[in-house]
Design a protein around this nucleic acid. Sequence first.
DNA 1: CAACCTCGAGTTCA
DNA 2: CTCGAGGTTG
Length: 791
Amino acid sequence: MSENSSSRVSERAAELRAQLHEASHRYHVLDEPTIVDAEYDALMRELETLEATHPELVTSDSPTQRVGAHPSSAFAEVRHEVPMLSLANAFSEEEVAEFMRRIRDRLDQDISDQGGPLTFSVEPKFDGLAISLRYENGVFVRGATRGDGETGEDVTPNLRTIKSIPLRLHGKAPAVIEVRGEVYMPRAGFEKYNAAARASDGKIKLLINPRNAAAGSLRQLDARITAKRPLAFFAYAVGVVEGGSLPATHSQTLRKLREWGLPVSDLVGTADGVEGCLDYYKRIGAQRDILPFDIDGVVYKLDDLATQRELGFVGRTPRWAIAHKFPAQEQTTTVEAIDINIGRTGAATPTARLKPVFVGGVTVTNATLHNADQVARLDVRVGDTVIVRRAGDVIPEVVRVVAEQPRGAAPWQMPAHCPICGSAIVREEGEVVARCTGGLTCAAQRVQAIFHFAARRAMDIDGLGERYIEDLCDLGYLHSIADLYKLSLADLLEMKRRADERDGTTPETVKAGKVATKWAENLIEAIEHSRRTTLTRFLYSLGIQHVGESTAKALALWFGEIDIIRHLPWPILKLVPDIGGEVARAIDAFFSQDGNQRVIDDLLARGIAITDTHAPAPKLRAKLDFASLLAEVEIPKVTGKRALQIATAIDSFDALLAAKATVLVAIGLPVDTQESLQHYLAQAENRKLLARCARAATQLPAAIPGAASQAAGPLDGQTVVLTGTLVALTRDEAKAKLEALGAKVAGSVSKKTSFVVAGSEAGSKLDKAQELGVDVWDEARLMEFLRGQGS
DNA sequence: CAACCTCGAGTTCA
DNA sequence: CTCGAGGTTG
């Protein structure tokens, strides 16, 4: 080795040591971590490797030479008679196999090979804080943190506040026993605590993550604060034992601990050999997101205690155990830009463009920042280093900015103009979202509107993705949704050729004279196929504000025909349950725009066939009388009661519009109501609305006698919620079948929910159901029920 | 008018 | 899946 490279190695080692010291100090002493675990691990491993190949570089104060950090002086020190161990880590299957091979090799030297795979006690690796609990004659006398493994801090009063730590053991426990385990904060408690903290307007500090929360809570000097934190405990090992003995294996020891009243996780078990351990790793990994607490891997411990003793230690890590870690769910990266995205409704959503980073199994490059408030809360700026998490769900989020990094430029602000169309971006009073005011003149909104139209749950045009829509719009083939139905195969191919030319992406095969046409043929076919549709899908696909699937369905059910719906004044729309003033006005406003009416004309003229037209619902007819309708118009001071009073004297909108002032006085209304009504009637706009109501009410066709009344199903009046993945049915099929039996299928669980159908990997909805004591069906029960109903 | 329940809209990656 | 906001209800 040359002089030069050896000095570089020693410099790097010194640098790593400094970084690790600093990080460890901030983490353990200041409770303010600056780097995530994965990074710390990576630095530590690098240093370990360096020291392994250059043993002369090992210094006595190297972070590799101890497990944790200095205990803070605020707590009394406790020496661990039996040191608290730290485990070697494995990050891949190869490393696990290597670990097991090492054990075998070592044992083979000493004793004859007994054949068969080794048995391991397998456990989740809880993401919390390791502690030791001392019981004397069955009574909890002292608890300490791990500290550096040799010496920890006495946090007995804090530990006493944790309900899952027994203050007295059951049965015949040894006279003195030290139980080791992990204090952690369950996710639900963490969320609940933070929700309260958020509501406290900054008075209570937010907890960063459950693990930090657990560590921080235990290190409170005032145990009353600890008591307010939702902490829990799992036992997983034993230290000192006097006046008693333990079983021959670790798994039996855990069982004993459970007998003595200590909480041991249900997830512990045993596994044989590499294969068994890896199976366990996968099984626990699959459950990771739905567990009620955080884990960062699993631990394999050789089950037989005698063999453990034989294998012994390397430094402070045992040869007989290893932690197999999951891919990190948190990483740090830098914010390269903060862009804004314009949605279908014009909503301007800030998005962080991140330096690509591998988190929880995928590479993340984007993370939504939701809105300007969120950006301000986090104070994220371009150039900042941030922690990115891929939590329980799939969607990455920026957790926080790492303090002490050189800050980027000025605080981020929502731009005043849309980056796509240049229109003003406006945030309405009291709203969280800012919106581009460009409407359909904004290219981004136009593309999103067409994309929505083509969506599976809307017109279901398969193969029409965002990219094609963008190109079709940019190159002038598509101006509105109606244009979709005049696209020809030739148009599509020409568009593709021009787009490729523009981007310089013309494939070699095309240059060679071959043109790929299959995609275009499929798309034309898909557009063709979408022509036949239902009224619900059609209404939904128009992308009217506030009209999603369920509102579209209500409209279809109540009014029956697009030609009726497209001309209704909002007070009549408001008669439909679940449609209030805001939504009704949005629908009316949509249809009041000539451009939108023209698009609908075009669509219908080009052969959109709505297959399920019918007469208005009978329930609607009953509500169309003058008094009910008048109450919906929202004339100040004219409530339902007053409307009724007015209606007894004046029997129609026409009569009301024609009524002289003297007539209004004669009705006997209170003076303020009279004035309000007269003032209302004096305005041309209002008179126009009333006239429209009058006309629409008389023009709505009568109900078809006897039609549309649905047969009563066995699930009438029941509300069902589906969650998780079903095997035999898709969610949509299950929904359709349940609805056919009269059930209402809702999206979220509440007290009103009759029962929840939980498939595999059910998430928070299942928790909610259990919390509220709502019945939960598994898929088998649902299938059996459906069979019983003959479906 | 507050509490509760729904619905709509937006979101990431393979 | 989650948040925000609209609608209904006591």
